[in-house]
Design a protein around this nucleic acid. Structure first.
Length: 170
DNA sequence: CATATGATGGACT
DNA sequence: GTCCATCATATGG
């Protein structure tokens, strides 16, 4: 499964992927346009160094949904890498395909897709309410340093689709 | 129970 | 770019 890879690889693989959220009879479809990779070890930006539960969740097997709350926002992450590795990818922005809502930020997209802590530690693989599809598509991937962190690692771990209007920041 | 703390967002200059 | 409201967590007593 593609989520088994290193967080950095998965962050890139996830771009262009389709997120399908079922709410009752409604189906919300969105395209992932911006991601960030996070590590539990050797990552000055990651809260996983201080936060036990976050760390533990990142060590779970690939495909585990990780929901992290900060201020009054939820952030949607997918655990990646081998079990015990403490890696995850944060979904920072999506492009709404069949609905109209601002999703250009980690807190905004969870609000739009009605994702909250109830998804925490559930698996994306066998989830009916939230699914992820991969799509073959060509686009340029742009990278930059992560956003909102006081001290980032040495290499850029944020990836987004070039020239896409729905990314949180150019 | 009390308190510290943001992987934010929005408003404003 | 800067400022800051605001609240779910984690952690410690």
């Amino acid at each position: 499964m593609f989520l088994d890879n290193n967080a950095e690889i998965v962050a890139r693989e996830l771009l262009g992927g389709i997120l399908v959220r079922n709410i009752g009879n409604n189906e919300l479809i969105a395209r992932i346009v911006e991601t960030e990779a996070y590590y539990g070890n050797d990552d000055p930006a990651s809260r996983a160094c201080k936060n036990g539960d976050l760390r533990k969740t990142m060590e779970m097997s690939a495909g585990t949904i990780l929901v992290y709350g900060v201020h009054n926002n939820w952030m949607l992450n997918f655990v990646t890498g081998e079990k015990g590795k403490a890696e995850a990818v944060l979904i920072r922005a999506v492009e709404p395909l069949n609905f109209d809502s601002r999703c250009n930020g980690p807190g905004l997209l969870t609000k739009a897709l009605e994702i909250d802590k109830s998804f925490h530690k559930r698996s994306i693989i066998k989830n009916k309410d939230l699914r992820i599809l991969r799509k073959k598509e060509c686009f340029d991937i742009e990278k930059s340093f992560r956003i909102g962190v006081s001290r980032d690692s040495e290499k850029p771990l944020r990836f987004y689709i070039k020239n896409n209007d729905f990314v949180s920041r150019k």
